[in-house]
């Protein structure tokens, strides 16, 4: 036996085995032990843990959504180790939050238990990927990508806009710096859903808006309910707190005039309705919405689904959100004359 090999067999190899297995033992402990003895032994985790322990998801172990310690995800592992080093090293406190990668992994867990909601969401524009949002020539040609886009599209993106898409101008051609992001959804489940809310809380408590700047999720019930104005008139708004989430992105311009920018607040015949009275929460589809309220015919006797509105055709100039009887029927009620 060569002496070098003997040394290897007698000392280095056992030492290596010891190190590797102690790491496995350690990560294994974190993977399988009660969260109260692992994740939740850090005070930073206690409020999250307390919320989770009375939530609808309390029967799921942390690792079932967040992934366990026994993982080959190098990013997750280094992030965790860095946090521990920073904490005990007395460095500047970093808020604990999920990386975008972790959020996308988590999303698979959502899908496994909520396949129908997931499928509905996938069918909607809210599932649009980074390529669809940030490489659209029509959009980029009129307004080039800005940091602010990430407020509603890609709110969890870990980086700045120049790290996502290039060039930041209106001439293009535009490409994603990481092609793997092309199909990743820009509005994942966590953009709107609050997972740790107590099971018994009101529906709006289970919804949230994730504000990228504050790195904070606001429960829908705490979001502002803005006044929407039509001229000087204050439009009647549904009391449904869930729709405060919608208006965060589908928002009017600064003067809050009805229908400006991306505002879809209903006025006209539908004034006072909640977004969710007509739209399916996940698919956004309003295809069945008329039938949920109207008998086939409106009080004027016309089938509401064939009226000339944007419900029937996107080309119509009568936006279903704001259409009023008088828009089509001047001073009279057709069918009754």
């Amino acid at each position: 036996m060569r002496p070098g090999f003997g040394l290897f067999l007698g000392f280095a190899l056992p030492a290596a085995v010891f190190l590797v297995t102690s790491a496995i033992g350690s990560f294994g402990y974190f993977h399988f032990a009660d969260p109260a003895r692992t994740c939740n032994s850090c005070h930073e985790m206690s409020s999250q843990h307390a919320e989770w322990s009375v939530s609808a998801h309390r029967t799921l172990h942390c690792r079932e959504c967040h992934g366990g310690s026994l993982t080959l995800d190098v990013h997750a592992l280094t992030a965790h180790v860095n946090r521990v080093v920073q904490h005990f090293g007395g460095g500047k406190e970093q808020p604990i939050r999920l990386t975008e990668q972790a959020i996308h992994v988590l999303q698979d867990s959502c899908r496994d238990c909520h396949p129908q909601s997931y499928a509905d969401w996938q069918s909607s524009r809210h599932s649009a990927g980074y390529a669809r949002i940030f490489l659209d020539p029509a959009q980029n040609g009129s307004e080039h990508p800005e940091a602010d886009c990430l407020r509603c599209h890609g709110m969890f993106f870990d980086g700045e806009i120049h790290e996502l898409v290039t060039p930041l101008d209106t001439t293009g051609p535009w490409t994603l710096k990481d092609p793997a992001k092309a199909a990743q959804p820009t509005i994942p489940c966590l953009a709107c859903h609050r997972i740790h809310t107590p099971a018994a809380a009101a529906p709006a408590e289970h919804l949230q808006f994730y504000d990228r700047r504050e790195r904070t999720a606001f429960a829908a019930s705490l979001l502002p309910a803005p006044a929407i104005l039509q001229g000087d008139r204050r439009v009647e708004i549904s009391a449904d707190p869930r729709q405060r989430l919608c208006v965060q992105c589908h928002a009017p311009t600064a003067n809050h005039q009805l229908g400006t920018s991306d505002d879809r607040t209903p006025a006209g015949v539908h004034e006072g309705l909640s977004c969710l009275d007509c739209h399916n929460a996940h698919s956004n589809s309003a295809a069945l919405s008329c039938r949920s309220c109207h008998p086939a015919n409106s009080h004027c006797g016309i089938d509401v689904e064939v009226m000339d509105t944007s419900f029937r055709s996107r080309e119509s100039k009568h936006d279903i959100h704001r259409v009023a009887c008088g828009d089509c029927h001047e001073g009279q009620r057709p069918g009754k004359n």
């Binding site: 307004e143 080039h144 800005e146 602010d148 101008d169 001439t171 311009t253 600064a254 003067n255």
Partner: peptide
Amino acid sequence: GRNACIGCRYCVGFACEIN
């Protein structure tokens, strides 16, 4: 090639969010 002001609350003292 750059946006119109959106009238946010924060201007003097801050870089512009939409350039």
